[in-house]
Design a protein around this nucleic acid. Structure first.
Lengths: 178, 178
DNA sequence: CCCACCATGTAACATGTTACATGATTGG
DNA sequence: CCAATCATGTAACATGTTACATGGTGGG
């Protein structure tokens, strides 16, 4: 069960019968926050899952409009999804941030930190705006992941701010060792 | 310039002439913290960079031992590396954490949060131990990225702890809305 | 001397990214 | 009615992952 497969199954459980495009939009809306899935991936994955019996495929026959395929979970798909949800997960993600690579290899601190700080600040503001839409309604999952995003953006802002202040103090001043 | 290419060039600048295996070990040691690069990637990338003229390749002729190839930066490689270091970078990384996917799709909070909390705690302890080795010597890059790792592990510990406490309060109690 | 592990690769496959194509829809 | 955008895919290529293969080396 790859992450993309889990996403497709999980979203189709919510959506009922839907097209690959619907799944892609739902993924953007609900997961875009911490996980992007290009549409080409979604098309490939629905096809694959259908071939493996996790999804049932059906051509959409509504008169107007272009031909397309609708998918829904089979019993097998439901079972696989439930099993995935139950499995614990001890693996840790990597930061894998290209900006840290540049930092490691001695990029100019002021330039890099400035650009990153601005971008992370914008992201934080966007997340906070989104969070204010939370009405407390179920399901909680999406809001919890949004909170994770906010906490991480906060530390990024802190991290790059410290570096920027260190850099402005001049190259001789010891950076970031409070 | 892909991230892996930048890693290979950056490490070879430090190492002088070295084998793909040496590069792989250096990557583990210096970047393993936030970026993993399987050895098969490193072999492929050195070969590619040599074909493109960024590296000079030379068979190692020391008597004993298996045949291997040694690489070093060409002038062109040095130039490309320097250009990459200068470029600013406004792109943001994604969290892309499979555990957040499970959380989003309604995994059991106690199980998931417990497993994640334990793993992140261990990681945090390991990073802090590593940080104590910092003698303040140059280059600072590696230590700065370690600090980033620590900050992020701290928020993960905080995040999963909150969830775990919320879960223990029972399913009716509102989780994580302090 | 044999087993385990380090070193050095190669290969196959899955996933992710980017680009191409093209049919509907809609706003100007 | 034309252009831009949405919707629906396909294709090519790059990257990442996993497995295989096999030569040295050092310890029991």
């Amino acid at each position: 069960m790859t992450p993309t497969a889990a996403i497709v199954l999980g979203l189709l459980e919510r959506l009922g019968e839907a097209s690959a495009y619907d799944v892609k939009r739902a993924a953007e809306r609900w997961l875009g926050n911490f996980w992007s899935t290009p549409h080409s991936q979604v098309y490939r994955t629905t096809e694959q899952l259908a071939a493996d019996g996790f999804l049932a495929a059906r051509p959409d026959t509504t008169a107007g409009g272009r031909a397309r395929t609708l998918y829904r979970l089979t019993r097998r798909g439901r079972t696989a999804l439930a099993a995935w949800q139950r499995e614990p997960l001890a693996a840790l993600p990597e930061l894998r941030d290209p900006a840290l690579l540049k930092l490691h290899f001695g990029a100019d601190l002021g330039t890099l930190a400035g650009a990153q700080l601005a971008a992370h600040r914008d992201q934080l503001v966007a997340y906070e705006a989104r969070q204010r839409e939370d009405t407390g309604a179920e399901p909680r999952g999406p809001w919890l992941t949004l909170r994770a995003g906010i906490l991480h953006e906060e530390v990024w802002v802190r991290f790059w701010t410290e570096l920027l202040e260190g850099a402005q103090g001049g190259p001789t001043r010891r950076a970031v060792r409070p």
